[in-house]
Write a protein that binds this DNA or RNA. Sequence first.
DNA 1: TGGAAAATCAACACAGTGTTCAATAACTTT
DNA 2: AAAGTTATTGAACACTGTGTTGATTTTCCA
Lengths: 231, 231
Amino acid sequence: MELVLERETPRVQEHDEAPSAQALAGNETVGEVEKDRRIARSKRALKDAYISLLLERGIGGFTVNDLCTRADLNRGTFYNHFADMDELLVSLENDVIEDLRHFQEPMRNIGIAGLLRHKLTGEPFPFLVDLFDYLREQSDFFIALLGSGGDTRFSAHLRDTVCTDLVLGVLHKDYRDAPTAFVNYYVAFYASAYLGVILQWYLTGMKESSDEMARIAMRLFLIQPGDPIEL
Amino acid sequence: MELVLERETPRVQEHDEAPSAQALAGNETVGEVEKDRRIARSKRALKDAYISLLLERGIGGFTVNDLCTRADLNRGTFYNHFADMDELLVSLENDVIEDLRHFQEPMRNIGIAGLLRHKLTGEPFPFLVDLFDYLREQSDFFIALLGSGGDTRFSAHLRDTVCTDLVLGVLHKDYRDAPTAFVNYYVAFYASAYLGVILQWYLTGMKESSDEMARIAMRLFLIQPGDPIEL
DNA sequence: TGGAAAATCAACACAGTGTTCAATAACTTT
DNA sequence: AAAGTTATTGAACACTGTGTTGATTTTCCA
C-alpha cells in the first residue's frame, strides 16, 4: 500500500501571507457593502449588541427588546433587517466562518513537504499559530457558541469547513478524490478531534500561547498510541 | 433492575455479559421508582411525547401545549412535574447518560492487555459492539440532540462521560493519575474524535453494522498518519 | 372505605413576537 | 443645495405561548 500523505503538493504557505487576526476581526467580512450607510450602521449596531448580550446571557437569554435597547435602535428597525433573532445569529456565524476561510488556502497546501519540514525544524506551521491567534481574539464568541448552551449548527458548520479542510490538506490525492467510507470516518475523526482540542483550550482558560497550541496540535496528529506522552 | 457490570480483574468484558440495548432502552433508569403510579404514568407519557415530538420537529419546534396534547394530559399536569420544557429535556438526557454509564466499567478495564489481545485476534472489544448496538437503537434521539439544531449541553455531557472514559481506559496509569496539560489535550482529542465518528455514522445513515463500526473505531485509534488507509 | 394526592378544567396576568401605519429623519443622486 | 428616495421611529395591534391559581373530580394507597 501507499503513503497517505500528499506528495505532489507545492510549498508551505508563507507566514506574512496569512491574514492577521486583527484584520479579520473587522466588519463587512461577508457579502457586498451596503449602499445606504443607515443600513450598515443599524446592522452593525445590532450585531455588536447581539454579541455583547450573547456573552452576558447566552443564546436565548435575551429578547428582541433587550437587543434593540442595547443597540439603541427601534424594534421595528430590527425586523427591517432580520426575520428573527436566529437569522441574526446565523449571520454572525457566517461572518466568523468567512473569516476562517482565509486559513483554508495554507491548510490545503501543507502537503508532505510541509510535514517533512516540520519534522526537521520542529517548528509548527505558521498559519496554525495565526489560527490560534484568531481563535483567542474571538474566544468569547466561540466559547458562547461552542460550549454548553451554544449552537450545534455552528459546531457542525465549523467541523464541516475548517477542521475538515485541515485534515483533507494532508490527505493523499487519491483518497481525497475517491474517498471510501473508512476515509470519511478518518476525516471525521480528526476533524472532530481538533474541534475538541480547541474547546479544551477554551475551557481551561487559554493558558497556552498560540505557538504552544500549534505545537500541541501538530504533535497530536503525529502521535501514536503507545508513544511516550510528554511535552 | 441491576445491570451494572462489575469485574474484579481488569480484563476485557465478555460479550454475553454486556447489557443489551433492549434492556437499557427501558424507563426508570435513573433515580428511585415513583411510589404513586399516577406520577410514573404521567412522567412517562410526557417523556414519550417529548421524544416523539423531538424527532418530528426538533428542539424548540413544539410548545408545552403540543406536548400535552400528544401525551393526552392536561397542561397543568406537566407543570406539576417539570418546571419547564428544558427540565424535561435534561431529564431525558440524563436517562440516556445513565444508560451509557453501564459501558464505563468495561471501558475502564481495557488496559494494555485488551489492546494486545485485539492485536493478536483482530477482534474488536465486545463491549464496543454492544455500544454501537445501543447507539443504533437510540439513534433518533441521539441524532436529534447531537446534530444541527441539537443541544450542545448533551454533546458536552457525552464527551465528558463516555468518550473521555473510553480514552482514559487505555491510558497508562501514570498519565491517568497525574495528567499534564498535554495529556488532557490528548484525552480531549480522542474523546471528541470518537464523538465525531459516531456522528458521521449517524449522518451517513448507519450503513455499517455495529461490528464494522467497532472495528473502524479501533482501527482509528491505532492508525498513524502515513499508514495505508484501507478496510 | 376514607383520607391523601394527583389530574382536570377554566381562567388569569403576563411577556414576547411579528406586523402595520403615519410621521420623521437621514441618505443618495442629480 | 434641493428633490426624491428610503430607513428609522413610535405607537398600536392581534396573537401565541408561558406559568400560575383555585375549585372540582378522579385515582391511588393503606
